[in-house]
Amino acid sequence: MIIADQKPVAEIKGFIEGKKKVLIAGCGTCVTVCLAGGETEVKNVASALRIAFKNDGKDVEILEDTVERQCDDEFVEPLLARVKNEGFDAVVTLACGVGCNFLSTRIGPVQVFPGVNTSFLGSNEAQGDYLELCAGCGECILHLTGGICPMARCSKQIMNGPCGGTSDGKCEISQDIDCGWYLIVKRMQELDILGQYDEIQAARDWSKGTHGGPRRLTKETAAMAAEDDAAKES
């Protein structure tokens, strides 16, 4: 899932300085699971902001709302309606960057601020412990590397690793980071497919990733015909 980390509340406060009525919007999906932007975090951030503005002697109304997902119109609509009807002049979303983008393009002349730093695609290794496992590179090469991703887990995204920096299975950049290629080699040994390692992997085609420009994916077989969609809407 998407892993995010809460922004320092002082930074968030800076965003909304001068606003009168601000909605802190949580998301019930990924950021809830990674403890960064669910209802509980919304409460905490909102509370901290209320205390902060109160101490500044400023009258800022901070309200809270959390929806199932901030990346779907159906879930976001009530939120947008609330912002409009109740006259909010800013929104701080604790959803990932997707949510912030999504709201921003639908909300009209109210600024949406990010309340979290959207970090990576990763796993929940243990309570409060998240690990990046996929780089979302657009063209999966895991079949070549024993299922462990050098794009996400090698600091240098080397396709023919490991570099000379590995020591004791750790990456040269930190003793706390596993060397992705060390893991790959060990995994290949476990699977008895180390023979594959002999093959030189050619330079990647990065165009499938962000380097090919912003991505959009349409699943033809699932998409609605344009006229059906319009009919549904009316």
């Binding site: 320092p8 509340v9 002082a10 406060k13 905490n44 951030v45 509370s47 901290a48 902001l49 205390i51 902060a52 101490n55």
Partner: peptide
């Protein structure tokens, strides 16, 4: 500790 972190960030 977490609550303290919030309080620190807002200058309390």
């Amino acid at each position: 500790k977490e609550a303290g972190g919030f309080l620190e960030a807002i200058g309390v």
